[in-house]
Design a protein around this nucleic acid. Structure first.
Lengths: 249, 249
DNA sequence: TTCCCACGAACCATATACGATTTGAGATAC
DNA sequence: GTATCTCAAATCGTATATGGTTCGTGGGAA
């Protein structure tokens, strides 16, 4: 289908044979949402997508139903689907929930993680530290995801792991990551990563690892909230806030 | 269509207007699974269900896709769907995950819960204690669910709450609850409930409430594992286990 | 008797078709 | 000029139809 000539039936059968069209549509949409090729709020019209993928609308509908169940798209009866947009409230909820499940997954991974993985996580974090000076939010976010993935992917509980993946997928819908919004958070983040690594390497209590991982995420969430409050204040009126102003112009 | 003459459009619109057939099928299947009218492993044939509900297979497919995404049914390409059966491994994973999210939801509820709800939870637990002597696993399980629902429903995080609901739904698929398998667990459970209530009433640190709620669930899980190990041992060979045998014949 | 193959029934996957609903634009009245 | 009504285009929801796949069953050969 990407070839465009439409005569690749043999290849298609061999290639897509294992994958149903419904699955194909699901993967297609999921990828495009994750890659931000479909922005939040984008209207998902069944027929258009079906045309793009050279299939009928039926498999597309099913794919969208699955995406809906995962919270990646919102759906309205007789109106249609659109890519879920994460308002700040949704963002906070998602980050809070992710903190819980990712923390737990990381804690459960702590004892199972291999030395090689731990080494790899350390390298990724070194990389993160290295790019702090010429800061690129997008690259930083990608590396950050890698770092955490290494730490929680060893979690033996598939259910929990799946929740973590869904949480990340939902948050990836954001127009920009938190690090684009609050660049200053990046440096703290790297330091907290190092702390988590120390805990795991030192064979700390899994619960301690879990809480560290959770607080790490919640700190990012809090940084976002603080930044938002700051901007709102500055935008609404040019009056300094009463307490604990930590302006860094 | 149920009328058969096809002229009932006004009634139909008014009655089913708020609910799509897809949604209807979803609710129908979900309820029947929850009520154990459809046992785990039961084969879900599209056409049969469509006939029962007087609709075509298309909405049924969508409903099943959603149930699949929630882990209530398993699906196999070109073969079909069946009600998810929770083997002991799946059970352990589900309980572990539920412990995490339910614990977190309960912790987040702790500060938000009303005095009335707290009172109600206490009453339900008293009820649980009262039925300990003429023990009925089914009734106990239902009350137990009530108790925990009161404690976590005040959680302000909808995402987390949804995960908790899904976890309970998945586990409700079990042929019998843990309490049917390990009746002795019931008494401990009631005592732990009281402890959790004390923590919340005393305004304890939410994290402490969370860990108590989590450990409560994990203790139930552990009781199940212990019981299973016991039976396996006794079945395999009539040799007493080396340590900490706490037989109650 | 046992193994293998062929055939057929049951069922899934997808395409097409059509009625129903929403939505926005243009016309008309005030 | 604004508000409201009407109508048509776009899109969704569901039914029906058809081609494929799986799985069980029965017959034949070793």
């Amino acid at each position: 289908m990407t070839g465009g000539d439409g005569t690749a039936s043999a290849v298609e059968t061999a290639l897509a044979g294992a994958l149903s069209k419904s699955q194909l549509a699901y993967d297609y949409l999921r990828d495009r949402i994750a890659l931000h090729e479909l922005s939040p709020g984008y209207r998902l019209v069944l027929q258009s997508i079906a045309d793009e993928l050279a299939m009928s609308v039926v498999p597309v509908r099913e794919a969208i139903r699955r995406l809906e169940a995962e919270g990646l798209v919102t759906y309205e009866r007789n109106v249609g689907a659109r890519v879920a947009m994460v308002d700040e409230h949704g963002y906070v909820d998602a980050m809070q929930a992710l903190g819980v499940v990712e923390g737990a997954a990381t804690g459960l991974s702590a004892r199972a993680i291999s030395a090689a993985d731990l080494q790899r996580a350390t390298e990724v974090n070194d990389h993160l530290r290295a790019v702090l000076d010429h800061f690129d939010p997008h690259a930083f976010t990608a590396l950050n995801r890698q770092f955490h993935s290494v730490l929680f992917e060893s979690c033996p509980n598939k259910l929990l792991l799946d929740m973590v993946h869904r949480g990340w997928a939902q948050l990836s819908g954001l127009r920009d990551s938190t690090f684009a919004f609050v660049p200053g958070r990046a440096r703290d983040s790297v330091a907290e990563h190092a702390h988590i690594l120390d805990l795991i390497a030192g064979g700390a209590d899994p619960l301690e690892v879990e809480i560290a991982a959770r607080n790490h995420r919640w700190a990012t969430m809090q940084a976002f909230l603080d930044a938002r409050a700051d901007r709102a204040d500055k935008a609404d009126r040019a009056v300094p806030r009463p307490t604990s102003l930590r302006e860094t112009p």
